[in-house]
Design a protein around this nucleic acid. Sequence first.
DNA 1: CCGGATCTGA
DNA 2: TCAGATCCGG
Lengths: 264, 264
Amino acid sequence: MLELRLVQGSLLKKVLEAIKELVTDANFDCSATGFSLQAMDSSHVALVALLLRSEGFEHYRCDRNLSMGMNLNNVSKMLKCAGNDDIITLKADDGSDTITFMFESPNQDKIADFEMKLMDIDSEHLGIPEAEYHAIVKMPSTEFARICKDLSSIGDTVVISVTKEGVKFSTRGDIGTANIVCRQNTTVDKPEEATIIEMQEPVSLTFALRYMNSFTKATPLSSTVTISLSSELPVVVEYKIADMGYIRYYLAPKIEDDEDMKPE
Amino acid sequence: MLELRLVQGSLLKKVLEAIKELVTDANFDCSATGFSLQAMDSSHVALVALLLRSEGFEHYRCDRNLSMGMNLNNVSKMLKCAGNDDIITLKADDGSDTITFMFESPNQDKIADFEMKLMDIDSEHLGIPEAEYHAIVKMPSTEFARICKDLSSIGDTVVISVTKEGVKFSTRGDIGTANIVCRQNTTVDKPEEATIIEMQEPVSLTFALRYMNSFTKATPLSSTVTISLSSELPVVVEYKIADMGYIRYYLAPKIEDDEDMKPE
DNA sequence: CCGGATCTGA
DNA sequence: TCAGATCCGG
């Protein structure tokens, strides 16, 4: 028996918007710890990891570990039927091959339940080792999204270079080149507007902007984003989900770090 | 060495939106006087002339005259990467075949530079003679834009007729005819809402609405537009750019002035 | 001036 | 059906 009640239902709606562009089918894993997902994108290049801790739910009951395969587009369709301030409850009976989404309007006038068939999905749950990162950049999530969007109108890849002074996003394309430098800045009105750089050593890595732009679909979940970089390691782009957990995206750097090595 | 600093960067963004639909490639000319452009549209029917006087820039340095050929779509792409309240600086070294756009966010936290290759463009710089016009109509730019848009859903050409009483915009198409008369009106709350007609003699000329609608892309640059008409002369549609200059569009009238002579 | 929502074109 | 542009509200 599974029963998860989430008062802030809009959060689950945003989570699905943040994942579904990247992943079509995935297993949601439910345990006493929380509600989580780990999946590769359809081209097996990027990885997304979601955690919603049990403490973040108003009510959390999970009698035994469950792995529930779902088509994320279908989940998203169901969740679009929930109002932004609806309370969402997920229910599944043990051994059932369906999951039920229940939506309660704030004034309890409307109660909807949507039942969806589960599917069998080969899960390839990778252990993600905790790593030490050469540089960790924390910045406003909207600013990061804007930069990725802007750069993708010039080129296909972004070089992210971190020094003590700031973080530089660069690209190069047919029509020219672009460099955007964000300086470390902690003297802001609100903490979520700060750009903070924790750096052990300088790092410069290249990534496909296409994936970065998919990651920024999580922007509505958090006002800040954390980008963790190490040579030879996948970058981690993390959006914290208040009081509940996080959504993390992993993407391996392109080998051809050197701009001059670009073909064409 | 060229270095132009424009605090109100959004102005340059608007200028490009106002030109790029009409002109794909053009030379920007830079001299001590200012930053200017003159180009025919791609079908060589309309002419657009831009002037941004040097005094309008916060910093203006132009050591020697430069003519810089650019693809306006690419320029527009770059400028879209600037925030609306960014400070924009254009830089070019003498003899360089590139131009650099620099964008500074208001708080200086984000500094971006975009480098673009220049191109060689045959410039056909026409001297535009100052002319006396039979009629000059000044009206709110939004109203003119609305009229052109509305009429183009009925017909392909507009007849602009000016008398002392007002200006009439007429069209005719398969589904019917339309006439919009704007009366001279100076008794308004704000001067930019006035419709003012200076007329030496009545005039009635026909123009292709397709071009008129392109001209109205400059509407965000000015709250008023000035339309100068003379028989046998191209109309001038001018949008003043506050403190800096103007953007002017020239379009020859259609010969078949007479509505009844329309073919089809 | 920015963010959200809506509407429309591809 | 999705992404872009525009309009409106904070």
